[in-house]
């Protein structure tokens, strides 16, 4: 029984026409650390608590009924988010190909990006408070493009640093200007 979230589906999956956007036969996707789920969960809960708290304050103090409905809606969304969090984190994947970096994320809203190494302008490594506690880091691959190309969250710190060095090295070989 294949896992529906498996990033690397068996080859026969491509035979039947699928509705899903899926790159097949590109290679083995690398996943981010499973611990990254915690970071996402903490973020979601914090957001939910703040919004629900604000809404209930409005409801209790100003007697605004609409705030109650907003609060309930946000609460529901937060719970649904929390349920899907592990799957969403499992859907994040990256892949170092010969000449470019592939990145994917999302289950409901899927996104695939390919950025040639030669286009790298700089690499950012950032650590949030929760991520630092778990020993994780986010890596951002910045190009000259208007929209951020690739940002890989939840890498173990050592991995993030070695990946950064590897990417810088690859970009140095394939430097292509702007």
């Amino acid at each position: 029984m294949p896992d529906p979230d498996d990033l690397n589906p068996p080859e026969h999956a491509q035979v039947e026409p699928s509705e899903r956007l899926d790159l097949v036969g590109v290679g083995e996707w690398k996943r981010v650390s499973p611990k990254y789920v915690l970071v996402e969960i903490v973020g979601t809960i914090l957001f939910g608590v703040v919004v629900c708290g604000g809404a209930s304050l409005l409801w209790l103090l100003l007697d605004a009924t609409w705030a109650l409905w907003v609060g309930i809606a946000v609460l529901l969304m937060t719970i649904i988010n929390l349920v899907f969090e592990p799957r969403r984190v499992r859907s994040i994947g990256y892949l170092l190909r010969e000449d470019d970096l592939l990145f994917r994320r999302g289950i409901l809203f899927q996104r695939f990006v390919a950025v040639p190494y030669g286009r790298m302008q700089l690499i950012d490594i950032t650590r949030g408070p929760v991520a630092r506690w778990l020993g994780l880091a986010d890596l951002k691959f910045v190009t000259a493009a208007a929209t951020a190309g690739v940002s890989i969250p939840g890498l173990p710190e050592a991995d993030a640093e070695s990946l950064r060095d590897r990417l810088v090295e690859l970009a140095e070989i394939r430097r292509a200007g702007l």
Binding site: P17, L21, F109, A114, V115, R119, T143, A145, V150
Partner: peptide
């Protein structure tokens, strides 16, 4: 193409229904 910075494809739930 020599100036392109990258490429991305996306799909949301409605588009998935419509392939």
């Amino acid at each position: 193409l020599a100036r392109m910075q990258g490429v991305s494809v996306k799909q949301g739930p409605i588009k998935r229904r419509l392939r």
